[in-house]
Simulated assay, not measured.
Amino acid sequence: MTVAPTPVARTGQRPTAADSSSPARPRTMRRAQNRAPWILLAPFLLLFVLTFLLPILVAIGQSFTAIDREGLFGEEGVTSRFAGFDNYALALANDGFVASIGRMLLFGIVQVPVMIVLCTVLALLLESASAKWPQFFRAAYFMPYGVPGVIATILWSFLYVPGLSPFIDVAGALGIRLDFLGPDTVLWSIANIVTWTYTGYNMLIVVAQLKSIPREVYEAARVDGANAWRLAWTVQLPLIRPALVLTTVFSIIGTLQLFVEPQLLQNVAPAIDSEYTPNLSAYTNAFAFNDYGVASAQAVLIALAAFVLSYVFLALSNRKAKR
């Protein structure tokens, strides 16, 4: 019985292109592979267009449109026409809307730095080597963010209203008069709610950045004799700068979008009118006066203000980083 010899590869000879390359894939398979990512992304892209891009485009288009109603309630006909920049002129001529933007700028100048400093200090304390039960306190500080804004505002309103607030009762017994809902204090009462709600959320962003710092950096700093304070000031703070910039930008945008807290506190705070914040002013024009053109113009102006403020902050931050 003879056995056929097994072919042995010849040494010293390079494999040809036909031997080394895989068989050419059919063109239809390549097309299917090219389409696969788009098919997987299609649900997200569809929702993104319908819930984000389309409302923005509709708002921009509506901001250049005016509606004329014939009759007392438009019963004789409703027509729309191109209004140019008339709606923007009306929005900027509204003293209440302009005052609300200034009010939110003051709010942001005070509240945003306080919240960023507070969340940074909490993150540094929780990530220090001597911190006890860091996971428990991390969850406790984050818990207020899980409370819906409506519920949080209602809970805090009980602590602001005279006759219901234990703080006001205790202060009154000591001869101190507290008015959390007065014209000069209600803005900072809202700032307290916002700070209580979002400090824990921003703290987790900073904590995530702290955890990404390599251990070798800490070990090198300790070898150089750095104590806990020196370590936080010269090592941790510079390395968590991207997280601080991100949380500050989010806070700037959120400041101009403030809506839920003042709308709910309207019921117990006479100092809060229908145009106390820019978003509240746009909401009032749209759903109380049915002036959707002016409301859309106000929404576009709010978005532009948020973009400009965020861009200026990022430009200043990048300039400092380069120095």
Rank of each mutant, 00 (worst) to 15 (best):
M1S: 12
M1R: 11
V3C: 02
A4L: 15
A4E: 09
P7I: 12
V8L: 05
R10W: 00
G12C: 10
D19L: 15
D19A: 14
S21H: 13
P26R: 15
P26A: 14
R30A: 08
R30V: 03
R31G: 14
R35P: 01
A36F: 14
I39N: 04
L40N: 00
L41S: 08
L46S: 13
L47T: 08
T51A: 13
G61A: 10
A66T: 09
E76Q: 15
F85G: 12
A89N: 05
L90F: 07
I101M: 07
I101R: 02
V114N: 04
M115T: 12
I116P: 04
C119Y: 11
T120Y: 11
A123N: 05
S128D: 08
A131D: 04
K132G: 01
F137M: 06
F137C: 05
F137L: 06
M143C: 04
P144Y: 12
G146Q: 13
V147G: 07
P148T: 14
I154P: 00
L155Q: 07
L155W: 05
F158L: 14
F158C: 04
S165T: 10
D169M: 14
G172N: 15
G172K: 13
L174Y: 08
I176A: 09
D179H: 06
L181P: 04
T185L: 10
V186C: 04
L187A: 08
W188A: 07
S189F: 02
N192F: 07
T197N: 09
Y198M: 09
V206I: 15
V206K: 03
A208T: 14
R215G: 10
R215M: 07
Y218K: 10
A220K: 11
A221N: 07
G225H: 08
A226S: 14
A232P: 02
Q236P: 02
Q236T: 12
P238S: 10
P238C: 10
R241M: 12
V245D: 06
L246P: 00
V249L: 11
V249Y: 09
V249W: 11
F250Y: 15
F250C: 04
S251F: 09
I253H: 05
I253D: 00
F259T: 01
V260W: 00
P262K: 01
Q263G: 01
L265T: 00
L265E: 01
L265N: 01
V268P: 02
P270M: 11
E275N: 10
E275Q: 11
Y276A: 01
T277A: 02
P278V: 01
L280E: 03
A282Y: 02
T284S: 04
A286S: 12
A288N: 13
D291E: 10
G293H: 05
G293I: 09
A295E: 06
A305R: 03
A305W: 03
A306F: 05
V308D: 04
V308G: 07
S310W: 06
Y311A: 15
L314H: 03
A321I: 13
R323D: 00
